[in-house]
Design a protein around this nucleic acid. Structure first.
Lengths: 165, 165
DNA sequence: GTCAGTGCAAACTTTTTGCAACTAC
DNA sequence: GTAGTTGCAAAAAGTTTGCACTGAC
């Protein structure tokens, strides 16, 4: 069995356990949605997910999508990002693999942070009485392009009005 | 001048700079909202903020609140949390003071993480070409109470149906 | 004086809910 | 067979927008 299939099975098992423990039913819709979500590499919105389901010849209503995504968040298989875009952005969770993002609050550009410092930093926290599933970090600030533009504008204003801002 | 007033002045200055740089006007509403937000210690929703403004004898319309909170997020003075509750949850930002939260996805209990490991861990990441304003981390998982309940339920089901889940 | 900001109400979008048909258990 | 799930349409909630008035610059 390939690595990918093994992971898929593990995820399905996790969801099955969750459904059983909460006395919820194992419907084809729920597993089809789970599978579709894990086929999406990056971020996605509810609308996009519905398109994917359509493409996969497994159309589902948006009420089902809303309910199922909520279940998956509860089951620690899905995350909803605080990107404050027009619509909520979701992303699959890979167990115990910390994820970090750098967000420019000016141009709203989001960059994934790679490299060990951040993921090691996140793993440094080991709670004694809490079973950790996944860790996510967001670093907010200003990207170099926006930084330069803002400085230029401020300087221009200071010169124009002969003031110190 | 007290520490608190100094901080307040610094925050107002930051907002003023932001408004100037973006050629936006310095209205009383904007500064009153900023002040109200920084008077709230924990999380808040738009509705709650509107109540606060009412109490402070500075009623503002919700359209103004939506517009101003968006500006404050852009100005790196406010953050919107990904708690997936009924309504979006906001919180003021304290510059360069990392914040972390532990979230039980089962009972939705949110706990602030205190202690050095996490904040030091977050500070370990120092991007070379990005001006960091603030860092936030979320640790998702299951709290001890929910953990125990889930285990109990799973065991009961396994016994009942003589299966291994 | 000009033009951006505010408040109101209406419009719009997103999400939830009630109900009949269906299906996992 | 029973009770949870789905899909549809309607309702509710959250957010944005158009417009007249106000006030920052």
């Amino acid at each position: 069995m390939s690595e990918k299939n093994g992971l898929q099975k593990e995820i399905e098992r996790k969801f099955r356990r969750f459904l059983l423990a909460n006395e919820l039913r194992q419907t084809p819709e729920r597993f089809a949605i789970l599978k579709a979500i894990y086929s999406i590499e990056g971020y996605f919105t509810i609308d996009f997910l519905q398109d994917i389901m359509q493409e996969r010849r497994f159309p589902v209503s948006s009420s089902t999508l809303y309910k199922t995504t909520r279940l998956l968040v509860q089951a620690n298989l899905l995350i909803q990002h605080p990107f404050n875009l027009a619509t909520p952005v979701f992303e699959r969770i890979e167990y115990n693999k910390p994820k970090s993002y750098q967000i420019c609050n000016n141009c709203h550009k989001i960059t994934r942070i790679v490299g060990k410092e951040m993921s090691d930093g996140l793993k440094a926290y080991r709670p004694r009485f809490f079973s950790v599933n996944h860790r996510v970090a967001y670093v907010y600030g200003t990207c170099p392009i926006c930084q330069r533009e803002m400085n230029k504008k401020i300087k221009k204003l200071e010169k124009q009005n002969n003031i110190k801002i």
